[in-house]
């Protein structure tokens, strides 16, 4: 009994016991699945029968897989367009709400609401109906005098934009992160600038923007990763149609694995995506020195 008591009072033993859940979780739910999936990436594996080692075959297949390239380019296009739009919007709106009046607080809530529910199936289902040919968007356009009925989701040019719009609509959480850093900029900086005769624009470009660059960088990294890995919207709204013009990489991976039962190929696709995310993150970090202000306040 005393022995147990002594153990419980020991700092290092207690520490290990406290972090035990994470150690177990890390091994069982991250390290092991990632580890075995490396092996599967080099196998023919249809989930039902045992995997057969085939070397680099899956990666060679990828090079000739039209949908791989298509989905990769769709995903990158979607990310490169939607992330900057989202961040610019978030920043502009954050600037509008910088004043902490009561009304601004309520509006902030309204603007933030879409990003808290935006990932749900309910919203994806709703989006699909809004952009249907007889949906609310077309009807409002009709009421405004536009004669044409546009098939937003049936047209290869417009379908991807409905998904981009859905993403940009959820700028609320980025906006809140911007607001958090905006409020940390000391007021004295602006007072000093005003004394020196700097106008509003000058203040924005010489004080606000440089001091926000670390936050912009953080948002950019997070949103780019999220963008590359998006799937729910595509899955429910477009299923990659029309003509695969909205086929996200993650959905392609899902289809190969769970629809065509090519789990080995799916594991290879997953690993290629991990590499792509890594490359994007590394590139962003490499440019960090060039434009991110790190002097603190």
């Amino acid at each position: 009994m005393n022995k147990i008591k002594a153990l419980v009072f020991k700092e290092n033993i207690s520490g290990i016991i406290f972090v035990m859940p994470f150690i177990i979780g890390l091994i069982c739910f991250l390290v092991v699945p990632l580890g075995i999936s490396i092996y599967y990436a080099f196998c023919d594996y249809n989930i039902l029968s045992d995997p057969v080692f085939v070397g680099l075959k899956n990666f060679k297949t990828m090079l000739n897989d039209e949908l791989f390239w298509k989905s990769l380019s769709v995903t990158i296009f979607y990310t490169v367009v939607s992330v900057p739009l989202k961040l610019i919007f978030a920043l502009i709106v954050a600037l509008l709400f910088q004043k902490t009046t009561k009304i601004a607080g309520i509006f902030r809530g309204v603007y933030y609401l879409p990003s808290i529910i935006g990932g749900s199936v309910a919203v994806a289902v709703l989006w699909k109906r809004m952009f249907a040919t007889d949906g609310t968007i077309n009807q409002i356009l009709h009421a405004m005098g536009v004669e044409k009925t546009i098939s937003w989701l049936g047209n290869t040019d417009t379908a991807i934009w409905t998904l981009i719009l859905l993403t940009v609509w959820q700028f609320g959480s980025s906006m809140l992160i911007f607001l958090g850093s905006l409020n940390q900029i000391p007021r004295t900086y602006y007072e000093a600038a005003m004394v020196d005769g700097a106008g509003k624009w000058r203040q924005f470009f010489s004080i606000t923007l440089p001091l926000l660059t670390p936050t912009i960088f953080f948002n950019l990294v997070m949103q780019v990763i999220n963008g590359l890995l998006a799937y729910t919207q595509c899955f429910i709204i477009t299923q990659g149609q029309p003509m695969n013009s909205t086929l996200f990489y993650m959905v392609h991976m899902y289809n190969e694995t769970f629809v065509y039962y090519k789990a080995g190929y799916g594991a290879a696709l997953a690993w290629v995506m991990i590499l792509i995310v890594g490359v994007f993150t590394a590139v962003l970090f490499a440019t960090k020195k060039k434009w991110v202000y790190d002097g603190g306040f």
Binding site: L30, V32, P33, L34, S37, Y40, I47, T257, A267, M273
Partner: peptide, 14 residues
């Protein structure tokens, strides 16, 4: 930093 989505296939197999 490791997003849940890329773990989809590995975790399923496990």
């Amino acid at each position: 930093m490791v997003p849940a989505q890329v773990l989809m296939v590995p975790q399923y197999l496990w």
